[in-house]
């Protein structure tokens, strides 16, 4: 795979009971590459014998090349990546991260950027707002969270920002908001699944051009029942435990598998299915339904049944 960035954690801050901010600086004291708002890095973790590689959006200023920041929400029901970050990563921890990759970029042609954030979905927008500030572009943020106590960075966001709190029964007035945007506005949404679906449906109903509405789609892999897979090219059978993805199980077995987003959005890790006797649980945003019998995205999707063999 590609060159990695060797970093050290210099700051860990609990923004609220669920969310922590981590700052990484290069171990060699040099500068990190600048990045683009919306980019993520893949953070590698050695979690007591299990290798985890989780993508996190960068939330810091893209022009600050002295360090990168990620903001992580603890997911007690997840597979353990966020728990590892929260419980084991401290100031001084040495870590390895990927170069930034952007699967949720700004469209430079936009006359105005309209951001819709739900909860931890604020993270890419924080970096985007920094970046747009440098080039003087127009933006507006609508940020929904459960209550002011869980509204990460709420106190730091300045400018055209509107807050909404579930506990107060205040919600983004989506239809009105989208309907009154000036021509040339691009809409960006990052938040829970339900919010993405709501924005997608509302934008379509209002006739917004598809190319002007952008979604941060990749989601953390979720656990599921364990299963076995035959890797045809490598000539071996591997076991995928409940809290590991198929991609991680392949990597743990030393099988080379390309990846970028590790969240079912980019298509890089796509595998051809050779034999299928059972049901693939497709959890990605990449494959078309017509591909569901012939392909699988090992980063997020799982399998239940008698036999699955893939070309890897």
């Amino acid at each position: 795979m590609n060159a990695k960035l060797q970093v050290r954690v210099t700051e860990v801050e609990a923004l609220n009971p669920l969310i922590k901010r981590f700052r990484f600086v290069p171990r060699d004291g040099g500068l990190l590459p600048a990045f683009s708002g919306g980019a993520h890095v893949v953070v590698e973790m050695e979690d007591h014998g299990t290798r985890r590689m989780n993508p996190y959006s960068l939330s810091s200023d893209p022009e600050d090349r002295t360090g990168y920041e990620v903001t992580v929400r603890r997911d007690d029901a997840g597979r353990g990546g966020s728990l590892y970050m929260h419980n084991h990563v401290a100031v001084g921890t040495e870590m390895v991260i990927s170069h930034p990759v952007n699967l949720f970029p700004l469209d430079g042609r936009a006359k105005k950027h309209l951001f819709l954030a739900g909860g931890i979905g604020i993270t890419p927008f924080k970096a985007m707002i920094h970046q747009l500030g440098h080039i003087g572009a127009k933006w507006e943020l609508h940020y929904a969270s459960r209550n002011p106590g869980l509204c990460a960075y709420g106190d730091l966001l300045r400018g055209p920002v509107q807050f909404y709190y579930d506990d107060d029964k205040s919600f983004i007035p989506l239809k009105d908001l989208l309907a009154r945007q000036p021509l040339g506005t691009h809409v960006y949404c990052c938040g829970p699944k339900g919010m993405l679906a709501w924005v997608r449906a509302t934008a379509a109903e209002l006739g917004l051009a598809e190319h002007a509405v952008h979604f941060e789609e990749f989601t953390a892999p979720q656990p599921g029942a364990p299963f076995d897979v035959d890797l045809v090219r490598s000539g071996r059978r591997i076991h995928v435990p409940a809290h590991q993805s198929l991609l991680e199980a392949m990597e743990a077995a030393g099988v080379d598998a390309p990846y970028l987003c590790r969240g079912g959005a980019c298509g890089q890790c796509e595998c051809d299915v050779v034999t299928l006797d059972g049901q693939i649980d497709h959890r990605d945003h990449w494959l078309a339904p017509t591909d569901h019998k012939t392909k699988i995205m090992p980063c997020v999707s799982r399998f239940a049944g008698r036999a699955l063999a893939i070309d890897r």
């Binding site: 590609n2 990045f35 170069h99 930034p100």
Partner: peptide, 11 residues
């Protein structure tokens, strides 16, 4: 094109 869309910074 598919390859280039996956082109990564630093590589």
């Amino acid at each position: 094109l598919k390859f280039l869309l996956r082109l990564q910074h630093g590589a």
